[in-house]
Amino acid sequence: MRIALAATCIADALFPQAPRATVTLLERLGHEVVFPAGQACCGQMHVNTGYVREAVPVIRNHVETFAPVLDGEWDVVVVPSGSCTGSIRHQQAMVLDRAGLGAQARTAAGVAARTYELSELLVDVLGVEDVGAWFPHRVTYHPTCHSLRMLRVGDRPLRLLLAVGGIDLVELGAAESCCGFGGTFALKNAPTSAAMLEDKVTNVRDTGAEVLVAGDYSCLMHIGGGLSRASTGVRTMHLAEILASTREEVR
């Protein structure tokens, strides 16, 4: 399968290990990965903060960059982020539509229909749960809010993790509770965000895990920042990074 990668702006700039692992993983599974050069951002931050007018050019750029998927240039688009996939699927067409850009909105809806979050792509499209990964560490999984409640990825990430060789997967307490990131919420309501983060850090620490894994680097940036500040020694990793790990590769 020919797969276009939407790396997401935050991972491209700050957490390149997630899209790199996505490339490694998909190529190992025998697929061709393409990184369309025009991409920048999906527009989620602007929409969710209320700057919808400012989101329009950002979204148009994303839609134009990935529109070739409609012409068969690639089979699907993969996004290693639950919240960006959620924004692409549930916000982009609506924003363009309401800005009076009907034709672009229809293109956006078409692109969105061919866009998958990583665990969705693996389980639903590629039909694989055991990706041949090896990761002999104690790991706990945080289901990010938008993966859980916007995309409804359900237990797909857990099924993928459970098939990883050597892994010791432990349950996270109050896993489904938000970590308090919420994009600009973390800045606009910093003390409340910090209070939520504190509880998340406590729950992660209580698992005794070496690694906290999630499907979204924005949440991982937040929780990781808290884990680091509290000197817990717990690392954060994207789902793709664990799935890309193999016995041959010493991590």
Binding site: P16, V23, L187, A190, A194, R229
Partner: peptide
Amino acid sequence: LWTGSRDLPAPPKQTFHAWW
């Protein structure tokens, strides 16, 4: 507002698109 209660990782030496 961020670093009041959380750390931030340093930007990586190489972005993803540069790596690609």
